[in-house]
């Protein structure tokens, strides 16, 4: 763990040095939608350092979470025909630097990695990708409408769940602070300091000291057992407005359900893995035609209890970081925060 102080005027070139040698994934606004874009063109063609510096400075949340860099929407696993079967080589050529990831998303990626790595099954595809990714985190200046990271015990100003965390200056005389939390991050900071872009200072754990948002406690949790909520909560009333569009699961930084499919390509078959969504009628549909989650009531119950009860029981974390994406994007105004408050006995 190291901390380097980078003066304002050297900030842009310092960020340029960070992403040098990586394919940079930078939030870029196009047609009003802020989205991570992989910049795999030649570095000279675009002002990558400028874009990255803007992304660090930008105080908005990209509409999709950065989970796709660890857990892509579609991933080919093997190709087979009548005679042979070959595993698809993992694409490890690209080293990706994901720039400007906010603390809510950083914590969400931690949950994802735990699910894919620490459980009964280890997923080499997902965890292998982590080694090729440099996560560059940054804080949020203010809460956006629908955000509730504070209630989920997440400090919007700081997170150590990344390789490098960039802390913005608090006032005009202040400088940027680059913190490193991994071996890879330490190396980059070394290069930065030897390159003359900044100087080391005593590591100062900013969490809690720098205007934390009073979030050391996870307020929004479900204490009750699953069995207490499964049948007693009014799931029908809670889910009445839901249209089942599933957009909440696609943009959620922690949703990680997947499905396996086969696709024909010539005389070969490709088996691939793709995102699934508990909001869909096809989710966990049995071959017999029976569906244990036949209506939106069961599906929405699965979504809430999975996030707040099942993952916590199995892996120790609540799989919701309060990024508020699902609340902002829902066409019917569903609000997971209010639902959790309601069923955990705290009245809104």
């Amino acid at each position: 763990m190291k901390c380097a102080v980078v003066p304002r005027e050297k900030f842009k070139s310092a960020v340029g040095l960070l992403i040098d040698g990586y394919v940079a994934a930078i939030p870029v606004k196009e047609n009003g939608v802020l989205e991570y874009k992989k910049m795999d063109g030649k570095a000279g063609e675009k002002d990558l350092a400028g874009l990255a510096a803007y992304a660090v400075d930008c105080d908005e949340l990209p509409y999709k979470s950065p989970k796709e860099f660890l857990f892509p929407q579609v991933e080919e696993l093997m190709v087979f025909d009548n005679d042979s079967c070959t595993a698809v080589e993992k694409d490890t050529r690209d080293k990706i630097a994901v720039v400007g990831v906010k603390p809510c998303d950083l914590n969400a990626l931690k949950v994802l990695l735990t699910v894919f790595f620490q459980g009964k099954y280890k997923d080499d595809n997902v965890t292998g990708r982590r080694e090729n990714i440099m996560l560059i985190g940054t804080g949020c200046a203010k809460k956006k409408p629908g955000c509730f990271c504070d209630e989920r015990g997440i400090n919007k100003n700081f997170s150590s769940e990344c390789d490098i965390f960039i802390e913005k200056p608090v006032d005009e005389n202040d400088s940027f602070r680059f913190y490193s939390f991994t071996v890879g991050g330490d190396d980059v900071l070394d290069r930065l300091v030897t390159g003359g872009f900044g100087s080391y200072s005593d590591y100062e754990p900013a969490c809690g000291q720098r205007e934390g948002n009073g979030c050391e406690k996870e307020e929004l949790v479900i204490e009750a057992e699953e069995t207490e909520l499964f049948d007693t909560a009014d799931w029908e009333g809670i889910s009445e407005r839901c249209l089942g569009c599933g957009i909440c699961t696609y943009i959620c930084p922690t949703c990680h359900c997947f499905d396996f499919r086969d696709a024909l390509a010539g005389n070969k078959t490709i088996r691939y893995r793709c995102w699934d969504s508990c909001m869909y009628p096809k989710f966990t549909l049995h071959a017999s035609g029976h569906n244990p989650r036949a209506s939106k009531k069961e599906r929405f119950r699965q979504r809430v209890l999975h996030k707040y009860v099942y993952v916590k029981k199995n892996f120790g974390y609540v799989a919701c970081t309060g990024c508020g994406r699902c609340i902002r994007s829902c066409p019917a105004g569903m609000n997971i925060r209010n639902v959790v408050r309601e069923i955990s006995g705290i009245r809104v």
Binding site: K64, L243, C245, G246, Y250, S277, Y280, P281
Partner: peptide, 21 residues
């Protein structure tokens, strides 16, 4: 991203099982 949210929000899309499903 083929999330099918447009279909679910659409007034005209109300088939019990969509051909996509």
């Amino acid at each position: 991203i083929l999330c099918f949210a447009c279909r679910q929000a659409c007034y005209g899309c109300y088939c019990p099982v969509c051909f996509m499903d």
